[in-house]
Design a protein around this nucleic acid. Structure first.
Length: 586
RNA sequence: GGGGUCGUAGUUCAAUUCGGCUAGAGCACCGGCCUGUCACGCCGGAAGUUGCGGGUUCGAGCCCCGUCGACCCCGCCA
């Protein structure tokens, strides 16, 4: 090694030692005589002093250094003069008096300043990611990521799990998200898909008797990226044989506890609380509720149904529901307009406002349809008080609850509610097996088609699929869905029935899932698993704006990489080898 | 695919309500001064096809149209 020590390592205890340091020039302060240079590496900073009285040529050379030059400095560690010590820096007590300087590599003029608090804008940061990653906060994020994954591995290894890799090139099964496809050269016209998750493989590992599997698995979904979503991302994929919900919960909680212990030194309270999907929707209008603050929804269907309002009466007669949320202290005109627009954009017919006046009297466009007794009941149910405004929307469930869930979040945002600090994990359980496809009206899996129905609901698979409940569960942290899992189907016939229920024909079942169904016919340990997203977990732990900040080389929201210019065209030769020709509109 | 915001010096940002004289400042860069700084300080300098293309106008960084890119949101994300 060129260096004897790293930055951040030297303290007063090293006084008098002759050391060699290597690193980047962070900042320099040229006082005309004395010259100070802060050297940076992954581990920290160290101040180096050049003194012209000791060596004027050396000091002159050092004065010509620029930020991000890579240098090797040799010198003697010494204590700083008494009043020059710094307590706020780890190495603030010492400095290295340089007697030798070697420039290993000069930095050209930088596209942006690395040693600057304010960051460059994201296009530049992504194009020059290797410079962006020199910034200590970014290195910190990646270190947290490493510690997180390491903690997960340590815990699962200790619990008898095997880490097993599964293929990146696999069969395309067009359920769920859009697949990334890879053309086959050997079998022209055929394609591999990149895994959206290793779902079937991990179940096959259970069939194989591997019993406890996990993988830090890269997954690919060809959908538009978001601040919390990347086309390729990393999941902790795990699966357990002879396991049920509680077993998966216990292992997941243990792994997360290890992560928070190692990264933040925080002891998570276990077990995590649980809430059913129905409770989450009714109280928060979300299947991933942020329970750090109130503004909970209330169900005012009954009260509103008894009012003379045609809108409410009709909704209730048609089996719809009415949900309310209270804005404490009322709303400004602007805020009310904003919330109404939000509700309409989210698909509500409208948003009703009831201002609570003196004596519990209601004001607002629909207030006249409420008798004093009914008004009284509305106040009791919602808990609203004088000066508050009650907001309500009517319509089908769960869509209306979701609208009011959005209103709740917006309301919390605009009133600047203090979200309680801390880490509020939550298991959400008892999901419906299917959701209604808004386009076809038919059922689609709400988790994935390998999720086991609740045994008591299996009889309704064909007759009333939307009432079938599943053994799926989500892990939620501070309102962010970290991952989903389920107890799986392990009987081939039940698997066929679920696939048929979501409209897969028998031929398609054989073609796409035949190998899998056959596997289920050779003796299968009942199994269950989960797949929490690593990027999102690290994102929340780091407290950064977006998921891109915890990924070394992320894609843009247009799914490109400014760094290497991908995706990019390929040569006609490459296409010919694959038997492909392009047919691009415009 | 749709909506929104943004694009000005290497970089981060300015540039009067409805368009008006030579497009400014911090950091970085170059030159000079400075021996205890740590956001060092002081003096001076260089640095611009205002993303690109078109239009309106006596005159456009600013208004209009198109286009490219980035970010945020909707759709999408089993």
């Amino acid at each position: 090694m060129l260096r004897t020590h790293t930055r951040g390592e030297l303290t007063a205890a090293n006084e008098g030692e002759r050391v060699t340091l290597c690193g980047f020039v962070w900042k320099s302060r040229d006082l005309g005589g004395l010259l100070f240079i802060d050297l940076r590496d992954r581990y920290g900073f160290t101040q180096v002093v050049f003194d012209p009285v000791v060596d004027s040529v050396l000091t002159k050379d050092a004065a010509a250094l620029h930020g991000e030059d890579v240098v090797e400095v040799t010198g003697v560690v010494r204590l700083r003069p008494g009043d020059m010590r710094r307590e706020d820096i780890k190495t603030g007590e010492i400095e290295v008096r340089a007697d030798c300087l070697r420039v290993l590599s000069r930095a050209a003029r930088l596209p942006f300043l690395v040693a600057e608090e304010e960051t460059a804008k994201e296009p530049l940061r992504l194009k020059y990611r290797y410079l962006d990653l020199r910034r200590p906060p970014m290195q910190w994020n990646l270190e947290i990521r490493h510690v997180t994954i390491n903690a997960i591995r340590q815990y699962l290894n200790s619990r008898g799990f095997l880490e097993i890799e599964t293929p990146i090139l696999m069969k395309s099964t067009p359920e769920g998200a859009r697949d990334y496809l890879v053309p086959s050269r050997v079998h022209k016209g055929n394609f591999y898909a990149l895994p959206q998750s290793p779902q079937m493989y991990k179940q096959l590992l259970m069939v194989a008797g591997l019993d406890r599997y996990y993988q830090i698995a890269r997954c690919f979904r060809d959908e538009d990226p978001r601040v919390d979503r990347q086309p390729e991302f990393t999941q902790l994929d795990l699966e357990m044989s002879f396991a049920e919900e509680d077993d998966v919960f216990e292992v997941t909680e243990g792994a997360f506890a290890g992560v928070f212990r190692e990264t933040l030194g925080y002891e998570l309270p276990l077990p995590f609380p649980r809430m059913t999907y129905h409770e989450a929707m009714n109280r928060y209008g979300r299947d991933k509720p942020d329970v750090r603050f109130g503004f909970e929804l209330t169900d005012v269907t009954e009260v509103c149904g008894e009012s003379e309002s045609a809108v409410f009466k009709k909704t209730v007669e048609e089996g719809g529901r009415v949900f309310a949320v209270v804005a404490p202290g009322g709303l400004s005109r602007k805020e009310a307009d904003e919330l109404e627009k939000l509700a309409k954009d989210e698909g509500a017919a409208g948003l009703a406002f009831f201002k609570v006046e003196d004596g519990g009297k209601l004001a607002g466009a629909l207030a006249k349809f409420f008798t004093p007794a009914l008004s009284e009941r509305l106040l009791t149910v919602t808990g609203a008080e004088r000066g508050d405004t009650i907001l309500a929307a009517a319509g089908p469930f769960p869509a209306t609850a979701e609208v009011m869930g959005s209103v709740r979040l917006a309301l919390a945002e605009m009133t600047g509610v203090q979200k309680a600090s801390g880490w509020h994990f939550l298991w959400v359980t008892d999901f419906p097996l299917f959701e209604e496809d808004p386009e076809t009206g038919g059922p689609v899996p709400s988790h994935h088609p390998f999720t086991s129905p609740k045994p008591e609901d299996i009889e309704y698979l064909e007759t009333d699929p939307l009432r079938v409940m599943s053994r799926a569960y989500d892990i939620v942290l501070n309102g962010v869905e970290l991952g989903s899992g389920s107890v799986r189907i392990f009987e081939p016939e039940l698997q066929r029935r679920v696939l048929r229920a979501v409209g897969v024909t028998d031929e398609e079942i054989e073609e796409r899932f035949g190998f899998f169904l056959e596997a289920l016919s050779y003796g299968v340990p009942p199994h269950a698993g989960i797949a929490p997203g690593i990027d999102r977990l690290v994102w929340l732990i780091c407290g950064v704006i977006g998921i891109r900040d915890v990924i070394a080389f992320p894609k843009t929201t247009e799914a490109t990489s400014p760094l290497d210019g991908s995706p990019s065209p390929v040569s006609p030769t490459q296409l010919r080898e694959l038997g492909l020709s392009l047919d691009i509109d415009e």
